[in-house]
């Protein structure tokens, strides 16, 4: 036997993967189709198409409010979890210290925890403390789940980072602050950036935690859920389709920036 995968196996794997991709994208494609439908309910065959639901999704005051709330939460979570995750990752992957292995395992616990149960426990906790849940409390709830994930993302970068670089900078006359600014942060920048992106997007789409911890404030996902249970209109797929386009733009721009930076680095040599 040769160590390469046999052709029939390769082909099966390609076909299987293609089928899974189709499976994953079916509902997304359907949502985009449904967003252009004229009638109130989506039914095949579609008789008339139009874009008025997009206009409403883009102009309605409520829509702006929903997006702002989601944005405030996701933005705050991204910033805070990168700060927490930066130090968390140093403790996780860089320093050899007494409690490290216990810390590593404890950090996994919130990730492997039923989110809705966590959200409800936090709801009880806030009510018990007399705090009225708003989007502020949702930030805390998101952080409990997202900060450990960001820590793992940054840790992967920290593992591959030669800490002798810091000693070298120190040896060449840099003080503690200069080492951080000139060496540690730039060297870990890709990890910090992808951590921030991850945090933002995970927070943006989160439902299980938000639904119990935002109080009277509503995020986009909460609104989608409510509308789905009662009162479906094509505003739902229109709004959804917009968020799909938004995610595509963020990912494509992110990818292009990454490519451009890599290329300008290569070109400067």
């Amino acid at each position: 036997m040769f160590s390469e995968t046999k052709p029939w196996m390769r082909n099966t794997i390609y076909a299987w993967t293609a089928a899974v991709v189709v499976f994953i994208y079916i509902p997304i494609v359907v949502i985009i189709m449904a967003s252009f439908v004229k009638s109130r309910f989506f039914r095949l065959p579609v008789r008339a198409w139009e874009t008025k639901w997009y206009e409403e999704a883009l102009t309605a005051n409520l829509m702006h409010q929903l997006h702002l709330t989601s944005f405030y939460i996701a933005g705050s979570v991204a910033i805070l979890s990168v700060i927490l995750g930066f130090f968390g990752a140093l403790a996780f992957a860089r320093y050899e210290w007494k409690g490290r292995h216990l810390y590593q395992k404890l950090l996994m616990v919130p990730i492997f925890f039923p989110q809705a149960v966590l959200g409800l426990a936090l709801l009880l906790w806030f009510t018990f403390l007399g705090i009225i849940p708003t989007w502020h409390t949702a930030i805390i709830a998101h952080l409990v789940w997202i900060a450990p994930i960001v820590t793992l993302v940054i840790s992967i970068q920290v593992y591959g980072y030669d800490t002798a670089q810091e000693e070298a900078a120190f040896d060449l006359g840099a003080n503690r602050f200069q080492v951080l600014r000139e060496v540690t942060l730039p060297a870990l920048a890709p990890g910090l950036l992808s951590g921030a992106l991850f945090a933002f997007l995970l927070s943006w789409v989160n439902f299980s935690l938000s639904t119990y911890t935002t109080g009277a404030d509503n995020t986009v996902t909460e609104w989608l859920y409510a509308k789905m249970i009662v009162g479906y209109t094509p505003l739902v797929p229109a709004l959804g389709a917009l968020s799909v386009y938004g995610s595509i733009i963020i990912l494509v721009v992110g990818y292009l920036v990454y490519r451009a930076r890599a290329r300008s680095k290569a070109a400067s040599s």
């Binding site: 994208y25 509902p27 494609v29 359907v30 949502i31 789409v205 959804g240 990912l251």
Partner: peptide
């Protein structure tokens, strides 16, 4: 291919479920 699989995670899960109801 990884990117193709990552992308749907960043579309609200509720929305994708709505898509399934339409299917």
């Amino acid at each position: 291919i990884t990117l193709i699989f990552v992308f749907p995670i960043f579309v609200s899960e509720n929305l994708r479920l709505v898509g399934w109801t339409l299917v």
